[in-house]
Amino acid sequence: MNKSVLIIGAGISGLACALMLEKIGYTPVIYEKSNCLRNGGGGLTLWSNATDAIQSMGLLEEIYQNSKIISESTIQTSSGKTLAKMPLNDLATQYGTHTVGILRANLHHLLSSKLKQTEIKFGYELVDLEKTNKEVIARFANGHVDTGEFLVGADGSNSAVRKKIFPINTLRFSGYEAWRGISTYTNHNTKCGKAFEAWGNGRRFGVIPVSDSLVYWFATRNTTENRDEGEVSKEQLIDIFREFAEPVPSIIKFTEEKDITRKVIYDLKPLQNWSKGRVMLIGDAAHATTPNLGQGACMALEDAVILAQTLAENKSVSQSFKIFEETRMDRVKFIVNRSWLLGRFVQIESKLFCEVRNILVRLSPSIQRNSSFERIIGHKI
């Protein structure tokens, strides 16, 4: 039997998938259209459900060593008034693993460094797929052709694989744009692993420590879909977020301009299926989500572990793919749709409605009693 597997995309989902497939006897080949592993991309949060998946990969201690454990996360107003607190150390005791902030490049490097049998080919852009009953044939822009027992599309929200197997699919505009950066600003709170997200009128600013000396930050602002303002300087960002209390201005100030990126936010309207024949989508290619719940990378890691488990437990690829979809679809749809609705809620622009929003958050039950939150980050594989 052909035990080779083709993976399109060398991001988090592709690397994690290759690592898990190696463990069950496959020999993956990853094809990445860019010329190298991504070294940028800022940071991200790996909630307890993601670190549970990392534990299944056998990498938990190394993740802890290359990240910052988040002890607490606070939601506050733009003026710094606390609306709600998430005691993440307590939740780690409850769920078994910590929530961490990590540089995306660190996660990429750790996953890729653990690959033993996988070859990563850079500069290969997928242009066509051909499926038979026994294999998948992939064709690339440089003329290269390869075959595998099956193919995994892990090539992000603008997936070329998805466009081949499901040509009718829609990216959904969120109504806002986001800036991301890495700052050298730290204080007592960040060194203690305390994260926060401040909500203004149609604007947000979030901070996640990723080490003792660095923080990852993101900022959002409502926008129209077709607006393209080009580059925005640090001074302009400070002005855009002028209503936000310290340490927001200082965090922007202590960020290198080259480390600031801007992106208009889209998600993927939930699909009815992620597979067709011997081709399976995972990660953002299958279920790109808005970043409001910090679950994009987390779901990609879950996908990698569960897909490998499913393949190991079933005789046929088609049966495994069907079970994988049945196992994952409801959970992922819930997270994508909940993140979308949360974005609409927190990006409210009317001052009056923002005041109502803040009151609702302040009066809501504690996070430990929030069943939706527990359903998301308390998930065990």
Rank of each mutant, 00 (worst) to 15 (best):
Met1Leu: 14
Met1Ile: 09
Gly9Glu: 04
Ala10Phe: 02
Ile12Gly: 11
Ala16Cys: 12
Leu19Asp: 11
Leu19Thr: 03
Lys23Ser: 14
Tyr26Gln: 09
Tyr26Ser: 09
Arg38Phe: 05
Leu44Trp: 02
Leu46Val: 01
Trp47His: 12
Thr51Tyr: 13
Glu62Ser: 11
Ser67Trp: 05
Lys68Phe: 05
Ile69Thr: 11
Ile70Asp: 13
Glu72Cys: 06
Gln76Ser: 12
Thr82Phe: 10
Leu83Ser: 07
Ala84Met: 08
Lys85Thr: 14
Pro87His: 02
Leu91Tyr: 03
Leu91Thr: 01
Thr93Glu: 09
Thr99Tyr: 06
Gly101Ala: 03
Ile102Pro: 13
His108Lys: 05
Thr118Glu: 08
Phe122Asp: 02
Leu126Val: 01
Asp128Met: 02
Asp128Val: 00
Asp128Trp: 00
Lys131Ile: 08
Val136Ala: 06
Asn142Met: 06
Gly143Asn: 15
His144Ser: 12
Leu151Tyr: 03
Val152Tyr: 03
Asp155Phe: 07
Ser157Cys: 04
Val161Tyr: 09
Glu177Tyr: 02
Gly181Gln: 15
Gly181Trp: 14
Ile182Asn: 14
Asn187Thr: 02
Lys191His: 11
Lys191Glu: 15
Lys191Phe: 04
Gly200Pro: 13
Ser211Glu: 10
Asp212Met: 06
Ser213Arg: 07
Val215Asp: 15
Val215Pro: 15
Tyr216Asn: 12
Trp217Gln: 10
Phe218Lys: 00
Thr220Cys: 14
Asn222Ser: 08
Gly230Phe: 01
Gly230Trp: 01
Glu246Asp: 15
Val248Ala: 11
Ser250Pro: 03
Phe254Asn: 15
Lys258Gly: 03
Lys258Glu: 15
Val264Met: 14
Lys269Gln: 12
Pro270Leu: 07
Pro270Asn: 06
Asn273Gly: 01
Ser275Val: 00
Gly283Ala: 05
His287Lys: 01
Thr289Ser: 15
Thr290Ala: 11
Asn292Gly: 03
Gly294Pro: 04
Gly294His: 03
Gly296Lys: 04
Val305Ile: 06
Ala308Arg: 10
Gln309Leu: 08
Ala312Met: 10
Ala312Thr: 01
Glu325Thr: 00
Met329Ile: 06
Asp330Glu: 05
Lys333Cys: 11
Phe334Cys: 04
Arg338Ser: 15
Arg338Val: 06
Ser339Ile: 02
Leu341Pro: 05
Leu341Trp: 09
Arg344Tyr: 05
Gln347Met: 14
Ile348Pro: 04
Cys354Thr: 10
Glu355Arg: 05
Glu355Asn: 09
Leu360Pro: 00
Arg369Gly: 09
Glu374His: 07
Glu374Val: 00
Arg375Tyr: 11
Ile376Glu: 08
